[in-house]
Design a protein around this nucleic acid. Sequence first.
DNA 1: TGCGGGCATTGATTTACGTCAACGCCGGAG
DNA 2: CTCCGGCGTTGACGTAAATCAATGCCCGCA
Lengths: 246, 246
Amino acid sequence: MTTVGPCAGLDKPDCKHGRSLNGCDDCKVRLFSVCGALDPAELDELDQISHVKIFAPKTMLFDQDALAGSVFNVTEGIVRLYKSLPDGRRQIVGFALPGDFLGLALMDRYGMAAEAVTQVKVCRFARPAFVTYVDGKPHLLRRLHEFAGHELSLAQDQMLLLGRRTAEEKVAAFLLNLQTRYGRIGATSVTVPLPMSRQDIADYLGLTIETVSRTLTKLAKEKVLVVVPDGVRLLSVERLDQLAAA
Amino acid sequence: MTTVGPCAGLDKPDCKHGRSLNGCDDCKVRLFSVCGALDPAELDELDQISHVKIFAPKTMLFDQDALAGSVFNVTEGIVRLYKSLPDGRRQIVGFALPGDFLGLALMDRYGMAAEAVTQVKVCRFARPAFVTYVDGKPHLLRRLHEFAGHELSLAQDQMLLLGRRTAEEKVAAFLLNLQTRYGRIGATSVTVPLPMSRQDIADYLGLTIETVSRTLTKLAKEKVLVVVPDGVRLLSVERLDQLAAA
DNA sequence: TGCGGGCATTGATTTACGTCAACGCCGGAG
DNA sequence: CTCCGGCGTTGACGTAAATCAATGCCCGCA
């Protein structure tokens, strides 16, 4: 099955110069993602410049301030996006789930680093090719802009969370938010997987691992949730909502 | 000078159906703002749908979650943009200076509230008219998108600040940042005006007024700056850089 | 099957920042 | 000019979360 020639050594046996067998057609996240704005012909064209790539857990998609050579559409797995201070303090600015687009701003440098949390599958596009592609498609640019606007709004919510909420409120909001996002990509459940480490959660919420851990145990003691391996099971979404809202 | 008829009661004697005498031509911030992407003919067209409006200090441009009826380009003064929690805790997500655009995301609701800090002068556009205007102008959409990308990047920097920096680092970064922004709109000086209250600064940095005040006093004692009426004079930008960076 | 190394939890203690409270300054109203 | 109310500063004290420090758990690996 593994081919020789231009495809040798690529991640997937169904490689067709880096694309999956049916290209975007069988993409599970297309409708949620920026690609949802495209008609079949445009999708085909996009297919030509896309490359499927798989990243192992803990590998880096790109580094903070590196030249933005590519943009990505996440199709499987979870990516942590973060900024670091010279002394090592880290702030995770977001977790990218399937359907999320990395490099939305189309700027010439990534302003943050991106690392695979789980195994991650992406559609990669060379930025110049993607920008050229977008140039003749105002509706796609419009869609990108909508996504960017949404991101901006989320970023501002996160500012409110980081600046003005208590540890308990932060954790509650985080869990609910994650549950909602899983739901949108078709994984509705009261069991919320947490593939990222406690350190990741802490760096996302502006806390320490100890505080995250203590807060989860506190919520567990209050029967709001149960801590399970690699996740939590929510017992009272209602109560969690209360905590997160005010 | 004050006209009767359709212009009666408007803020400015040079009113021409809400526009200033020379429209965008004499706009001081045009080149810094999204309008910088437009050629003279387009500018003229934009002029037709713009209305100059003046807001007194402490008046509201729009409220959190209100329907986004207008978008604005700030031409004079300072606007605070904030989100509030039901219990009154507030996070200022940004201060808009001349040249800044409010409603970049073009979404149907403002996600935040906007209040004039000083007297504020804006170009107001009805959102539907503006969206229609943008629709035929991909280069303007591109420019809006660039601005949104920049905003997003700033928001992420602010997350890092809120989540991972100390009070002193926060204040230092805030002052330098503001100085840089004043510089970009042609007000380069080591004296940084602070027209906003201590409460505003605190709500921007995720601190209390007391901590902001104490931190400024501390920096003053260390001869890094001098607190002056409605501002600070920076004595050692170098030292401030050190504090802000790491 | 036992060993080693992350990762998470838990407890004891510290601390940066918040809270509470008093006071001073300044600018507008009478 | 004097009073008043808002804003900023300063000090004393409290506390949420950080730090420091074990200890436990799980999982890959010999």
